[in-house]
């Protein structure tokens, strides 16, 4: 299981209710239900991936976060997870609002557009960056709203969203992000993992 999922699962307490938004093949869901005894649901847009999840007996529904989150009642989950999909929404702002409505705590991970390789690509090549985590060309990318760890920090502060914890992931390296090292971590992190609360 990838490092990102290991970090997410550490955030989650046993016997909690979890919603994995954009659950993909259900790898994290399977891990959580086996190891953390959580009551877990998934939402996934790809039919192929939904079928894979259902084949594993996972409670996953086909749908997308922008239209289908509204069916979940307020605070009906202890944790809602959104892994590396925020940038693909038409309206990330509304999705975050809905995640915070549905979940008591929200875990969001974002591919960091502030990473130095991304910055260098734009600075020296003058081209939109294409990296391991962001392998698309500008004309076929599903990522409509890229942001940096700093951007997401600012967003949460402006919206009055509490950031409980932020983890930086750079390759296999895990570290904490705080106000004091934010500028630096924004330069070296490939991924930012945020634990939020309204």
């Amino acid at each position: 299981m990838k490092e990102e999922f290991k970090i997410i699962s550490k955030f989650i307490e046993e016997k909690s209710r979890v919603l994995d938004v954009g659950c993909g093949d259900g790898i994290l869901m399977e891990y959580l239900s086996k190891n953390k005894v959580v009551d877990i649901r998934g939402l996934e847009i790809s039919k192929e991936k939904v079928k894979k999840c259902l084949s594993k007996g996972l409670a996953v529904i086909e749908g997308d976060a922008e239209n289908d989150l509204k069916q979940f009642p307020d605070l009906s989950f202890d944790y809602v997870i959104l892994s590396q999909t925020l940038q693909a929404f038409m309206s990330p702002e509304k999705v975050i609002e809905n995640l915070l409505r549905v979940g008591k705590k929200v875990i969001v991970t974002i591919p960091n557009f502030g990473h130095w390789k991304v910055r260098l690509d734009l600075l020296f090549k003058g081209e939109m960056p294409v990296t391991k985590n962001l392998p698309y060309q500008w004309y076929n990318t599903p990522n409509l709203h890229m942001c940096t760890i700093q951007d997401f920090y600012n967003f949460c502060n402006n919206k009055g969203i509490n950031i409980y914890k932020t983890i930086s992931l750079n390759g296999e390296k895990i570290s904490n992000i705080s106000n004091s090292n934010l500028k630096y971590k924004n330069l070296i992190s490939e991924l930012g993992i945020f634990l939020l609360e309204k």
Binding site: R41, K47, V50, L54, A59, V60, I61, F72
Partner: peptide, 18 residues
């Protein structure tokens, strides 16, 4: 049906087959 089940936190999976 799925929406009604999710509203009460029931265990539900759903797929539309192409």
């Amino acid at each position: 049906i799925v929406i009604a089940l999710n509203a009460i936190g029931a265990d539900v999976g759903f797929v539309e087959i192409k």
